[in-house]
């Protein structure tokens, strides 16, 4: 690092510290922050403060154009949040990169306007380097973030090994197969409830013919699902309770409450068809 470089960096660090508030105020009005923090400008300003502070640390460290310095970790963490929120909201990597790039202008404008002549040249170079680094970090995040989204979608696809079937107008069913752990039951519950909305269903059948074992945990999950279905204004029936399972349920002293149960899927469908038309749930 040359003397000019280090004095430029020091001037930028001091500038960021002194102008923390003004800069945060300006950044809060940029698309990047405005689009993420919609509940109030204060929150956007607050988030912008965090980024100014993190950049101050980088400038203190002095290595403005090195994307590997540890001082950048904080910058990376903050940008990652904002960028993740933008890409979740549907903004593509190019758009997000553009929004990150906009952070530079207010910094350069303020440095150019406010720093004394002796420092200005070196400081402008240092500030430009710093904001270039921010832009690079932003690119790196939004590209790897895209990778994360693709991976997440894949995982979701594999989870929908539990299909929800539309059996009849306003009747949906989910055939459960295999062992039910908490995570999977949660997915089943969510998928079923979404299907109730999508199919405008008023009856949901949970068929557990393919479930080898019903213990207290599974029973509790079935209860929760039935309750949630009712809160949504539909009704739930559990079918496929084989004799052995019925016996276990009794032996374990599990109380299925007032959940409607039927021996077979066909019985459950018959029950469902009798319900459709009245379409009433009780909370």
């Amino acid at each position: 690092m040359t003397v000019a470089e280090s004095s430029g960096a020091a001037a930028v660090a001091e500038f960021l510290r002194a102008r923390r508030e003004q800069l945060a105020q300006q950044w809060a009005d940029l698309a990047l922050f405005r689009a993420v923090y919609t509940s109030g400008r204060d929150i956007a300003v607050n988030a912008a403060h965090g980024l100014v502070d993190a950049l101050t640390e980088v400038a203190r460290d002095g290595r403005m154009d090195d994307v590997t310095v540890p001082a950048l970790d904080q910058v990376r963490a903050l940008l990652a949040q904002v960028i993740a929120a933008r890409s979740q909201a549907g903004a593509g990597p190019l758009q997000v990169a553009g929004e990150v790039a906009e952070l530079k202008r207010p910094v350069i404008a303020m440095v150019g306007r406010e720093l004394a002549d002796v420092n200005r040249g070196a400081a402008l170079i240092a500030a430009t380097d710093l904001m270039g680094t921010v832009r690079l970090v932003g690119m790196e995040i939004s590209l790897s973030d895209e990778g994360a989204i693709v991976a997440r979608q894949r995982q979701q696809l594999s989870e929908i090994a539990t299909p929800v079937l539309k059996l009849w107008d306003r009747v949906v069913a989910v055939p459960l197969i295999g062992t039910l752990d908490s995570a999977r039951t949660q997915v089943v519950m969510e998928t079923l409830l979404e299907a109730i909305v999508d199919e405008r269903a008023t009856v949901a059948i949970l068929d557990i013919t393919g479930v080898p074992l019903v213990d207290t945990v599974v029973a509790q999950h079935l209860m929760k699902t039935a309750l949630a279905v009712r809160l949504m204004g539909a009704r739930c029936v559990v079918s496929g309770i084989r004799p052995q399972i019925a016996q276990t349920i009794v032996q374990l002293g599990i109380d299925l409450g007032d959940i409607t149960t039927r021996a077979t899927l066909a019985d459950a469908l018959e029950w469902a068809l009798a319900q459709v038309g009245t379409s009433v749930g009780r909370a």
């Binding site: 909305v197 269903a201 379409s279 749930g281 009780r282």
Partner: peptide, 15 residues
């Protein structure tokens, strides 16, 4: 609501 343990006693619900 279910995870939390909240119900809607006395209310009817519809889709």
């Amino acid at each position: 609501m279910v995870e939390m343990g909240l119900g809607l006693p006395g209310l009817h619900t519809t889709r």
